[in-house]
Design a protein around this nucleic acid. Structure first.
Lengths: 216, 216
DNA sequence: TAGATTGTTAATCGATTAACAATC
DNA sequence: TAGATTGTTAATCGATTAACAATC
């Protein structure tokens, strides 16, 4: 796989999971190769764009055959770093934290869910998907003993920045942020905002444009 | 508010919720006006882009003052259709469906959560956030009696397309899709894919670029 | 071979930024 | 008034598409 000194454009990063998902489906089909035209039909992107995206990382295709499905799947997995193990914790054992604890899809992407934390003493000790809920007061102690890269934040908005500061002080490298707070972090700490309600905003906006909102 | 015959570009639609969120925060501050420069600092977009975006919908600003915070907040809410009531149901009372049932943020955007459905007889009748879980077999009957615009889909992948077909046959106009399936729908039915694991993909990709994955 | 399909270049399209007249 | 800030135009930048030589 070609290594790049320059950063991968954000816009390509956003398409990689789409390719990955389609290729995963194709893996269980009888075909070995897929052309950029086939991928265009399945992704909605143009075949030209797909070839351009893929050529950004190296030359994966075989002229007149297309792309080896398994090979490309693995390559894209590697480009996204799925072959590297990443330990993950969840902060907040509420409804959303709980749903995340049951999320499938960690392993496939190289994530290991290691712990769930909460401040509510009624929840501490409870088992969620075989993980004991830990006391948030033990956060620093835990992080001192276990190398954790990523923390999912599913807590109240008003506690978000405080916990973020503690996580960063304890060496966390990335935050998967489900709160509505725009977290302040040093440049080297990654934040991925996962705003659930954004989907509702987009739908509302598009429903309005389709004139579906007039008589409701 | 200026009405447009042409569609709002997707890229602007994606920024509207960001403006909305920031303006909501500003509303509870002591200021009445906000300049495009202030908004630039808060959103990360350039002031030029912000003025351009807003001018797309009309002229909201006041030269030398900036934008009236409350007025702009309401305008953007209207542009996104938040002033119109939209009934919503959730299909699937698993961990994710449950989390969605407890989601705050519906009302503010004009959504009313009306019902939760599941196929599991053990769950049917249970109360989730004051909503009784209904039998999926009663879906058509229910939709025949109650006008519902949007359905959130939090069910198994292998049931997703089948339920989608039933929802569309019963008149649903938009699907908030939490499954991993690329749903096939008629052009006039909106689908908003909310792929939870996409955030994990992006984080992994960026961690790799920051060389955080080497020794884990 | 003839047909298919890649990888890449050049052309096009669209989005962002810079700049500034208008004006509060 | 002088300073601030919008709304808008023109310039720039970046992303997508079209086209095609290379080649399997």
């Amino acid at each position: 796989m070609a290594k790049h000194k320059t950063k991968i454009p954000q816009i390509i990063i956003r398409r990689l999971p789409v390719y990955y998902k389609i290729l995963k489906q194709l893996k269980s089909s009888s075909k070995d190769y897929v052309s950029s035209q086939d991928l265009a039909k399945l992704t909605g992107f143009s075949s030209s764009l797909i070839r351009k995206d893929l050529s950004y990382f190296g030359t994966f295709g075989r002229k007149s055959y297309g792309y080896d499905i398994c090979c490309l799947f693995n390559q894209i997995g590697q480009i996204m770093g799925f072959d590297k193990q990443k330990n993950l914790i969840i902060i907040g054992a509420g409804h959303l934290g709980r749903a995340l604890a049951y999320n499938r899809g960690y392993q496939e992407r190289g994530y290991n869910l290691k712990a769930v934390f909460d401040k509510n003493s009624k929840l501490i000790g409870e088992k969620i998907n075989n993980l004991k809920v830990r006391d948030i007061n033990d956060l620093e102690k835990y992080l001192g003993n276990t190398p954790i890269l990523v923390a999912a934040l599913t807590i109240d908005n008003n506690a978000a920045q405080k916990i973020t500061d503690r996580l960063i002080a304890a060496g966390i490298k990335a935050i998967w942020n489900f709160t509505n707070v725009s977290l302040k972090t040093p440049a080297e700490v990654l934040v991925e905002d996962q705003i659930i309600n954004q989907g509702l905003c987009h739908l509302s906006c598009k429903l309005k444009q389709n004139d579906c909102l007039e008589f409701h």
